[in-house]
Amino acid sequence: MSLIFAAAADVPFVPPLILIDIFLLSILVVVAVAIVRMRSLFGVVMLQGVYSLVSAAWFVTLDAVDVAFTEAAVGAGVSTVLMLSAMLLADRKSTPVPMRRQFGALAVVVLAGAAMLYAVGDMPAFGDVNSPANAYVGMDFMAKTAEEIKIPNVVTAVLGSYRGYDTFGEVVVIFSAGLGVLLLLGLNGNSGGWVARPNGQMLNDHSAPSAALSDSNVAEDPQAEDAQ
């Protein structure tokens, strides 16, 4: 124990941490590039889960245990399941985008990335104790929690008490998201009949634009009505 702390006090960087850093970050880069290039949506969704899981591992090395826990449960678990079930209802493959239509996106991304890289020099060094982000309010929460709330997990204390309004708003956001999904899809998957009037034209699910794309719609409709 004492050896570890003594080493940490003397050397500004712990080499094993840097090695794990490089290892996990290179996995993340490979996975992200694979997501861009992949056309099978099943692969894209699974790789997105892998990306979340690897970043959860990285959060552990950065001491953010609560965040890692949440990312592993939410990002790698639930959102992968949700994306899979949505993908089953949608498509299995994405059509390739021609090269000439990607240049605009590439230009925007390169420009934004260059601007951010230009600003990197002003960021505090990695692991700096005295950086502005680590010096004031965050560490004040630490001392205040030990005095006022007296529970060991500072993250829970800040989340529940000091930033209680924030968390309340977040619970309301989750509630609204659940409400939105239930309004869009229905709890038993039975929501759907819709009517819209764009430019004075009356549209509903029988006269939808998809009717122009496929003729099978008409044949399926009576069964769809029965199912509801």
Partner: peptide, 21 residues
């Protein structure tokens, strides 16, 4: 997720441990 990575990187302190008192 990458934005999350950026934020967590800033909060890391060398030689530190998880914020559980």
């Amino acid at each position: 997720t990458s934005v999350f990575l950026l934020y967590i990187t800033i909060g890391k302190v060398t030689g530190g441990q998880p914020p559980i008192l």
